[in-house]
Amino acid sequence: MSFIETDEQKSLRQAVAALASKYPYLDYVLPKARNHEPLRELWDEAGKLGFLGVNLPEEYGGGGAGMYELALVMEELAAQGAGLLLMVVSPAICGTIITRYGTEEQKREWLTKLADGSATMVFGITEPDAGSNSHQITTTARRDGGDWILNGRKVYISGVDQAEAVLIVARTEDHRTGKLKPALFIVPTDAPGFEKTAQEMDIIEPDTQFTLFLDDVRLPATALVGSEDAALMQLFAGLNPERIMGAAMAVGMGRYALDRAVAYARERTVWKTPIGAHQGIAHPLAQAKVEVELAKLMMQKAAVLYDTGDEMGAAEAANMAKYAAGEASIKALDQAVQTHGGAGLTKEVGLASMLAAARIARIAPVSREMVLNFVAQHSLGLPKSY
């Protein structure tokens, strides 16, 4: 792993930053978020420029790069307040799983559209009674002739109103053991028996969360992704990219907050001195900078390990990166609000609303407590606690 990015990666950063600068947080992103309107214009342009699918294979319209480059795109967008949440699920989770395990027909049908952003696929795993325990998922899939019939419920599914399909995690019955085991299905959002209900969240975000109801949703055999006997491994293939992308978004938000705070601290003068000259302001911002950069390094390490095929190393690093980035971004945003004083709580400045959104990083895509459980068990070798 090199700490010096290639010329291509540097150029990609510059190009993404240039795109994001056309969609300012205060003038574009925040008004959209307050109205719960997706960042459609930014998404479409990012897709046309090839940024959304940099990790997908070239033969299907992608950039042929890796998770490092996709995380780079997310970080640079978020660094200007314009992170795209659905990048986490559409090209990162769903695109990765279909690339690895999908049939040639599924790849041709979906990867090209995911790469240019002309179609979006979201991810449905969370259930009200399962929480972080994916082994307790109760959404079931049973065979009916050559078809599959799905029944169940999902919660906190992002962006279903923007998606053509949901990659649903269901469970099939193993007739040899009588046990239920996970399997992945591409479910069109217009399928009969598929219903979505918006969940009212108490945060300001462009993307809406949904509860999904699947009532005897009939799917053809071609809806199954990969093998019904290996879906747990297939499911995990999408979780490391999810954590890496979540970390990249949090790192970008932390950078955005620091940029805003530093600009204000340089200009705001009290008692004839810019407030940034005072250690009470400078030191907390410097500490936040250190912590954001450390989180970024772990995120980059996770992406490199993932791209080189080190699954276990990537899992450890991705969990650590997600934890570190979530904590660092919240601290940076909180200090940015504090630096602005009372102005930091105004609608005009717009930082307080982002602080609430950054709080998601401590909960999703996996809670910090479950990350600590992972590190305790797999990194430290301590007994499993759950």
Score class of each variant (00 low, 15 high):
L56R: 11
L84M: 11
L86M: 12
F51Y: 15
E45R: 01
M74G: 00
A71L: 07
L56K: 08
D44E: 14
L56G: 07
G53Q: 05
L72R: 04
G62Y: 04
A78S: 14
E45N: 02
M67S: 08
L85E: 12
D44V: 13
L56F: 13
N55T: 11
E45K: 05
L86Q: 15
A78T: 04
M67I: 08
E76D: 08
L72F: 00
L84S: 02
W43E: 01
Q80G: 14
E75W: 00
G61N: 05
F51E: 11
E75N: 06
E69F: 07
G63Q: 05
P57Y: 05
L72C: 13
L84F: 05
L56P: 03
F51N: 00
G81R: 07
A82W: 06
G53D: 13
G47C: 01
A79S: 15
G64Q: 05
G66N: 07
E69D: 13
L77D: 01
G81I: 13
G83Y: 09
E58F: 08
L56Q: 13
E75Q: 08
G47D: 01
L70D: 13
A82D: 04
D44Y: 03
E59I: 03
V73N: 00
L49C: 03
A71D: 01
G53I: 09
E59T: 09
G50Y: 00
L49P: 01
E76A: 04
A79C: 10
M74A: 09
F51H: 11
M74I: 07
G81Y: 15
G53N: 11
M74T: 12
Q80C: 01
G81F: 11
L70Y: 04
V54K: 01
A65D: 12
G63P: 15
E45T: 06
L77R: 02
P57A: 10
L77H: 02
L56C: 11
E59S: 09
Y68H: 12
Y68K: 14
L84P: 06
G83A: 11
V73M: 08
G47T: 01
G66M: 08
P57Q: 04
A78L: 05
P57K: 08
G61E: 00
G61M: 10
E45V: 06
E69K: 05
G61Y: 11
L85K: 02
E69S: 06
F51R: 09
L49W: 02
G66P: 09
G47I: 10
G81L: 14
G66K: 10
E58D: 07
G61C: 11
W43I: 01
E76K: 03
L72H: 04
L49T: 01
E76H: 10
G64N: 07
E58S: 13
F51Q: 07
E45G: 02
A82N: 00
L86T: 14
P57D: 12
L85R: 05
E58P: 10
G63W: 07
V54F: 04
A46L: 02
